[in-house]
Simulated assay, not measured.
Amino acid sequence: MGEYEAAFDRIANAVTHRVLENPAVPDEAKNELAEALDGVHADLPSSTRRAVAEVLSDQQRAEAYESDLRAELWRHFGPAEYRAETGLQDGSTGIILKRGARSIIVQAKFTRAPTFRAQDASGFALRADFGVPVILVAPAPLGPGSVGVLAQLLGDDNLEFVQWRGSADNGVLLETINRMLNQANRPTA
């Protein structure tokens, strides 16, 4: 049995280093793998157990962040303008706000990194899927490397990025939402 346990440990350690601890691997893939490994948690090497716990903790923080944002938006926009939540292709939730005939999607994108990286911005592609403006909301500011990558997208009037760490940042978030709702879906000249 020792040979199989050693092989299992090598595989688990490789998964830890190449996937769970790799910043280039999308969070969705890490979450899926961590949930699968959580079922055999007791059999994993300690370094893998720590990595699985960290990924699952990040997933819980992301869910709490999205929940806090939804609660703030509901509190400010209520049933008159807070219309729906929709699952998006990257696993996150898009919140649809509607004012008259105008709609926008507010997408929370949690990251524990000190800055928001370009690879975290998969939500911007959703504008094409839904045909409405998108506001991507994250707790971290845009990172220096991401500014250039996202400049083309952010230059579009239908795409915005807002750093929101909680209710203290509601001013800029609400200003951006109201501006976009007031101009959303208007034909361009």
Rank of each mutant, 00 (worst) to 15 (best):
G2V: 07
E5T: 15
D9M: 04
I11N: 09
I11T: 06
I11K: 11
V15F: 01
V15L: 15
T16D: 01
T16P: 12
H17C: 08
H17K: 13
R18S: 12
V19E: 10
V19L: 02
V19A: 06
L20P: 15
N22D: 08
P23D: 06
P23G: 02
A24C: 01
E28F: 01
E28I: 14
A29E: 13
A29M: 10
N31Q: 12
N31R: 15
E32G: 04
L33R: 10
A36P: 07
L37I: 11
L37T: 12
L37G: 08
D38C: 14
V40W: 04
V40D: 09
H41Q: 09
H41A: 06
H41Y: 14
S46H: 13
S47P: 10
S47L: 13
R49W: 03
R49Q: 15
R50C: 04
A51W: 01
V52Q: 08
V52T: 12
A53S: 15
A53W: 07
E54F: 04
E54V: 08
V55Q: 00
V55R: 03
V55G: 01
V55M: 00
L56P: 11
R61I: 00
A62R: 09
E66V: 09
S67M: 08
L69Y: 05
A71F: 03
A71W: 04
E72I: 04
W74R: 15
W74H: 12
G78E: 11
P79Q: 11
A80L: 03
A80W: 03
T86K: 08
G87C: 01
G87F: 04
L88N: 05
L88G: 09
Q89S: 15
S92W: 00
L97R: 09
K98V: 11
I104F: 01
I105Y: 06
V106L: 05
V106M: 02
Q107D: 03
K109R: 15
T111W: 00
T111K: 09
R112A: 04
R117M: 02
A118F: 05
A121Y: 02
F124C: 06
L126Y: 10
A128S: 14
D129V: 07
F130E: 09
F130G: 03
G131L: 10
P133C: 03
V134T: 08
I135T: 09
A140T: 09
A140K: 06
P144W: 00
G145W: 00
G145Q: 02
G145K: 05
S146K: 04
S146G: 13
L150E: 02
A151P: 03
L154M: 08
D156K: 12
D157Y: 02
D157L: 00
N158D: 11
L159F: 01
E160F: 07
F161D: 03
V162L: 06
Q163L: 01
W164F: 08
W164P: 13
G166V: 10
S167C: 02
A168M: 07
D169P: 05
D169I: 04
N170D: 15
N170C: 02
G171V: 13
V172N: 07
V172C: 06
L173N: 10
L174E: 13
I177N: 08
N178S: 12
N178G: 05
M180Q: 09
L181K: 09
T188F: 08
T188E: 14
